[in-house]
Write a protein that binds this DNA or RNA. Structure first.
Length: 271
DNA sequence: CAGAATACCTGCGGGC
DNA sequence: TGCCCGCAGGTATTCT
């Protein structure tokens, strides 16, 4: 499920209950995620206090005195907050238990997610050090994109979904932002003017901010019956609406595949 | 080097 | 009802 707004919402949900809390147990029921969970994770974490919880792209970073736990939710992962341990269900792979009896439970049917441990500066970790700027910072701007797009033949959609260019723009929000910016998703990245890139950057920021805001409003329900973050739905203008009329010009929306991902666009108003 | 394809998994919905 | 296929919001790795 998670795109960047969901990860940000998860961060905001788990941080308050676990910050400054000590790990009292680590239960690993299934260690084969995208990469194997480190075997001695429990020994590494036991009795350590959470110093901070951060996000970098779609990676969640839980910082402890001796190192950092790196989490990724993959395509189907989520974290739930339980106020006490309850019976684990089929895809509940890992529990992080804290001294205040809070349990953070990692659930991931497809197991594309990851849980890794690093004792170096997480910024230097192989998975993180090549990542592009955060989309909601000033470092992510049209001029930056324009420089990176020089001589790039890849489609603009694949380009903005490349985490080395910018992090956190997944298939849904890439699709929506391109519609918002009137840009055809197949356009080679280098063919797009600075002025058009301004619109695209603006659209990406707006779309992500709106989704995060929606997530914020569901945060209060974060600890529902099952403690999962109650995924929120932003109003999607084109994603998943192929064959339906464009909300701007009523041309029927088309569907295609770009870099093996389903892509919906309006053939009339996206050029 | 860039760009494209593949791989990792399970679940679900549609067609037959 | 059940089987088979294609597809799913990610991204590192392997290929050409």
């Amino acid at each position: 499920m998670p795109e960047l707004p969901e990860v940000e919402t998860t961060l905001r949900g788990i941080k308050p209950p676990i910050i400054n809390q000590a790990i009292s147990d680590v239960i690993i029921r299934h260690s084969r995620l995208r990469w194997p969970i480190p075997t001695h994770l429990k020994e590494k974490l036991m009795n350590q206090v959470v110093l901070n919880v951060k996000r970098r792209g779609k990676y969640l970073l839980i910082q402890f005195p001796t190192g950092t736990l790196i989490l990724h939710l993959g395509m189907s992962g989520r974290l739930s907050i339980l106020s006490s341990s309850s019976a684990a269900k089929k895809h509940d792979h890992v529990d992080l238990c804290f001294a205040n009896h809070i349990v953070i439970r990692f659930t991931d049917p497809r197991r594309f997610g990851a849980i890794l441990w690093t004792e170096e500066d997480p910024k230097e970790h192989l998975l993180l050090k090549e990542l592009g700027p955060e989309p909601l910072t000033r470092a992510f701007n049209a001029h930056y994109l324009w420089q990176r797009a020089r001589n790039k033949k890849v489609s603009i959609k694949a380009f903005i979904m490349d985490s080395k260019i910018v992090v956190g723009v997944g298939n849904i929000y890439a699709t929506e932002a391109l519609f918002q910016a009137h840009l055809h998703p197949q356009t080679p990245a280098s063919k797009i003017s600075l002025a058009q890139l301004e619109k695209l950057v603006f659209a990406i920021k707006i779309v992500l901010k709106q989704a995060i805001q929606k997530g914020g409003t569901t945060l209060k329900d974060f600890m529902k019956s099952d403690g999962s973050p109650g995924y929120f739905s932003v109003e999607l203008k084109v994603y998943g609406r192929q064959g339906k009329p464009c909300p701007r010009c009523h041309t029927l929306l088309k569907s295609t595949r770009i870099a093996q991902r389903s892509t919906v666009f309006c053939p009339t108003c996206q050029k």
